[in-house]
Design a protein around this nucleic acid. Sequence first.
DNA 1: CTGAAAGCGCTTACAG
DNA 2: CTGAAAGCGCTTACAG
Lengths: 345, 345
Amino acid sequence: MITLKELSQKSGVSIATVSNILNGKSNVSDETRKRVLEIIKETGYKPNFMARGLRASSTKTIGLIVDDITEFSSPQIINGIMSKLEEKGYRTILENLRFYTKWGHGWENTEDYKKAIDSAFQEFIAIKTDGIIYVSGHAREISDIPQKVQIPLVVCYAFTERENTPFIMIDDEDAAFQMTEHLLGNRKKKIAVITGTESNIHTIKRLQGYKKALQAHGIEYDESIIKTGDWSDNSGYENCRILLKENEKLSALFCFNDMMAAGAYRYLNEAGLIPGKDISVAGFDNRDIAAFLNPPLTTMEIPLFLIGENAAQTILDKINSKNGNEQNLYIQCKLIDRNSVIKDK
Amino acid sequence: MITLKELSQKSGVSIATVSNILNGKSNVSDETRKRVLEIIKETGYKPNFMARGLRASSTKTIGLIVDDITEFSSPQIINGIMSKLEEKGYRTILENLRFYTKWGHGWENTEDYKKAIDSAFQEFIAIKTDGIIYVSGHAREISDIPQKVQIPLVVCYAFTERENTPFIMIDDEDAAFQMTEHLLGNRKKKIAVITGTESNIHTIKRLQGYKKALQAHGIEYDESIIKTGDWSDNSGYENCRILLKENEKLSALFCFNDMMAAGAYRYLNEAGLIPGKDISVAGFDNRDIAAFLNPPLTTMEIPLFLIGENAAQTILDKINSKNGNEQNLYIQCKLIDRNSVIKDK
DNA sequence: CTGAAAGCGCTTACAG
DNA sequence: CTGAAAGCGCTTACAG
């Protein structure tokens, strides 16, 4: 490792001056700057991040705390964050909590969970990151971040009521509104729904969007064709079976994620019904599988990369602003129109 | 942040002694140790990782350099690595190069690529990680890691001939052998292949495994039913079309990844042929889509998590051993038998 | 415009 | 068994 000291020797100026040049301070003559910069380039000098972090107030580093990188949404969000941050000259450091991998589901608010979160924050505080982005695996209310943490903080893909902590979320309500309208086309129809788990925020908001769309078209809300799923493909299969048994004529089936839509496809297939021909089916998420279902599934794309970029921009704004009143953001989803929805003539 | 100094004041012993206790040195009286340990617990002291890294030789930290976390294999591999490392008391730090996101394909051996790799290594060297694991996005020969890097290094999901650098790979040849035998069942059959890109290592090894299996069953290798794909679902579609046009009777189709198998399904569907009934189809990777294809696709699972665990164990062995002659590892893949292969009676 | 010096929070010989 | 001191590679007032 080449150090400031060696740079100083090679260039014949003091360590302090080299440091000033490295940090873009203006109190250096152009001549000196040029010469030293040359030597820096030649030697391929890289600042020692730890030494800098130990001494300086800013490390130009953002810490990412992520629920679990194996969640389908996480890698893309992270890429969005890193892309924007890199563009702005910040490094990024990632702590993977592995909650889903370790504990499956239902770990929210357990003691172990709180301890893990706390420990991750402590670590980033020790490293003196300039800010922290919490990347959630799914929409939930995040309330367990120690209040004493003073570092600028942004919550990504979840909500929080924590003071001074903006969050970036998708607009689930609008997305479901859009999709319901799409399913409706220009007629009044009977659109069944397979929701996600009951108290899940995605479920609640999407149901609201669905209801609003019905209302806008003067269609009455019918609870009997709303079934509660659990996001798994089997629950899509099972609820589709029940819906078809209970209802003679169903125009469309709106599944609140692609997995359940895939399950519904499976049942429909067994029943000899063709999605997009005999019944409309829509999903949500636009995961890999959506394009490969037969027929390809019409679904809502979640702009993961964009969410990440926005989270990054928000933390940067927070770091650089005085007021610190950054807005919560609701990112719009995009309807991907494939062949599983019947088109009106 | 509470520091060693404060700990020292509170407990009435010197900073050095507190440090010794923290590091489990034996040269401290039980009484002192107990008292100080108590205070450490009370205060919730966390060592400043940067200060320690600046001074000490070991940081108990492993650096992960990953091609791109959006590659389908990466999150699971990373989870395997982190799981094992956490178990052994090591932290982990991740640098995401985002090669695929930034440059698509064909970036290997470009100048930008080399610079990015070099920079990542420099950074981890500055941080004084105890070791580095390079997590590749696909099998390739990795030859651009600066020789001057002296840190223990393991290459994961790729090859390297670099001195003193073990790698963890899957056994592509054995996997293809297994699958070909499975496709063969107990009879001689005509098994067509859609390979990956031509000089790709996965392609080469899998083709070898395929040939060996044919040989073992006394079947002659027929180049005319081997088509070169490019891993995309379209190339699966197109090559399937060509194969079916050129050959009247094909028993089976072995696609070297699931995406191409999905493309083949698409063509088969258009041609009125049913996988698992009219023709056997097999994929490779066991990605999400494999289970949701209709019928569900028989494929090879790549034990990603296990690969990660093995990489972690190897780097640990390397750090703690004197000889440093760690073995390259070839992990076996697992055949996932679903409904796309015709069973012999 | 330039540099000497203090100090960030630790670890590690070394002396006692 | 315990502690004073040097030093890791930097940044930052401050003096000149």
